[in-house]
Design a binder for these strands. Structure first.
Lengths: 110, 110
DNA sequence: AATCGTTATGTCTTAAAAAATATAGCGATA
DNA sequence: TATCGCTATATTTTTTAAGACATAACGATT
């Protein structure tokens, strides 16, 4: 009847660093090589996507993505090794949290 | 440097059942015997408090609180045994989640 | 039946968040 | 140097959420 739910994210010094939405965005950027295309592909506005990317980069010591304005194809964005690490870390965290909620749901006595 | 954070709640059929805020509100209602006083004591509007209470009661099979309009002192609200159970359950869940986040923070490789 | 402080609910206003729109700047390439 | 699609940012509009305010109903007590 009842179910334990929730969410997890990783915080840096000044706030959210990476959560589920940001991780998905990073994956799309990696897939498409562009913030614009990534945003469009997940029905997010470019502005919102850019702000998330900007926030992540500011929160991180080394940037998670590097952007290029101009050049071939108008520019683009690539996910760095640091970005890959962040994706991987969050994914593992998320998986363990899912396990946690499942186990907690089983424990509910109501 | 980084820290795992998040939140957990218990969901019923139609949405949120109990989370940290709702649990705290229940505790205050139990303490004061009144939605009005409980809300005031935690700087929440009566309306918001009432809506949370209403939502919890609707989500639960047995009501978590019973209200009385009119009568001695104008009425009041008492937390039922079911409400106590909900508080207890959520508290335990929350404690274990805190342990989870702490342990996950220690695991971070970034 | 008048009083009291509470529950319960409607309505209106304000503030915050999100979305939409517009536009400047970039640099490889032709 | 003109073009292209993308990054970067400012501005405006729309939508949503929160807050404020007002008021009816309730029932034990006097």
């Amino acid at each position: 009847m009842y179910k334990v739910s929730g969410n997890v994210w990783i915080e840096g010094r000044h706030g959210a660093f990476i959560g589920l939405g940001r991780m998905k965005l990073l994956e799309r950027i990696k897939e498409h090589g562009s913030i614009t295309v990534a945003a469009r592909s997940m029905k997010m506005s470019y502005r919102q996507a850019w702000e998330l990317v900007d926030s992540m980069n500011k929160e991180s010591v080394k940037p998670l993505v590097v952007t290029a304005a101009g050049g071939v194809g108008g520019g683009g964005t690539v996910v760095t090794a640091e970005g890959d690490k962040a994706i991987k870390n969050y994914k593992q965290l998320f998986t363990r949290f899912e396990k946690f909620s499942k186990s907690e749901t089983a424990k509910l006595k109501i």
